[in-house]
């Protein structure tokens, strides 16, 4: 089975107070942030590698971004991807429509039975890139996939709906899936593995290599402004050493008749 995994690199914004808005108000300040692979994409790669280990075939990792984004491709190569392609263009804040058009062009050049995306990204979190690409490619898709079993010509998937409900599908290949967290336990990628992956080929392409030009790609939505979210009401904070805070909280709970 030939698999293509589309992955991206995102800033680590797990700590709330590191996010600051750039003076342009079109971006956040990124120069002092650390970067990482998109959380969902770790599950994508794990799912892809597990399928490859089970069924054979090839795995190609694809990303669109500047040079630093090679980092996520190296991870993919270290995990077991056979090849990696980076389209050298910063589209991270662009209309996903444009990104989808670029990816369509890349994927069409490659052999594939299955295309995998993360269900969403940690930065913009629109969650619609994968299904857009599927539509352009003209192949079936399923989003939010939490269980996946593959056969030679088809796959059985379960999508995660609301309130603990799963939805089952059988889909003919080729197909595109967006992968949800929890579908597997992504393995740790060792630094040794990443170093060894430096030997593997990493292909860099430009938009013109794909017969595209940025000017011809007109966005349908436009980012107007970024702001910090308005401050909501804040919890009454209990401060002190754990003993003290625990004591105060216990009293509050008791007074509230919890126990």
């Amino acid at each position: 089975m030939d698999i293509i995994a589309c992955i991206k690199r995102v800033p680590d914004t797990s700590e709330a107070d590191v996010v600051k808005i750039d003076p342009s108000q079109k971006d956040i300040e990124k120069d002092r942030l650390a970067f990482k692979i998109n959380d969902w994409d770790e599950y994508v790669l794990e799912a892809a590698v597990q399928l490859k280990e089970k069924l054979g075939g090839t795995l190609t990792a694809v990303t669109i971004g500047p040079k630093e984004w090679d980092e996520v491709l190296r991870r993919a190569l270290a995990m077991g991807a056979d090849s990696a392609i980076r389209i050298d263009q910063d589209v991270s804040a662009d209309d996903p429509h444009i990104v989808a058009i670029i990816l369509d062009k890349v994927i069409r050049r490659l052999p594939y039975d299955l295309v995998l995306f993360g269900a969403q990204s940690e930065d913009f979190g629109s969650g619609h890139l994968g299904a857009m690409v599927a539509e352009i490619l003209g192949i079936p898709h399923a989003t939010l996939v939490i269980n996946l079993e593959a056969e030679e010509k088809k796959i059985h998937v379960q999508r995660e709906l609301e309130a603990g409900t799963l939805q089952s599908y059988t889909i003919d290949l080729p197909a595109l899936l967006t992968i949800h967290t929890g579908i597997n336990q992504p393995r740790y990628i060792s630094m040794g593995g990443i170093r060894r992956a430096m030997q593997k080929e990493l292909q860099v392409m430009s938009l013109s290599d794909l017969g595209l030009s940025l000017d011809a790609l007109t966005p349908m939505v436009k980012l107007e402004e970024m702001r910090l979210p308005p401050k909501g009401k804040e919890a009454e904070l209990i401060t002190g050493a754990p003993e003290e805070t625990a004591g105060q909280l216990a009293k509050i709970l008791k007074d509230a008749g919890i126990f």
Partner: peptide, 27 residues
């Protein structure tokens, strides 16, 4: 580590160091 199969907390520990230079993952 080479096979990537380590306790989740160890994975977090090491990834935090890769990313932020400390095990807590603080900036």
């Amino acid at each position: 580590v080479e096979r990537g199969e380590i306790p989740s907390a160890a994975k977090e520990f090491l990834e935090n160091i890769q990313r932020q230079g400390n095990p807590y993952g603080t900036s």
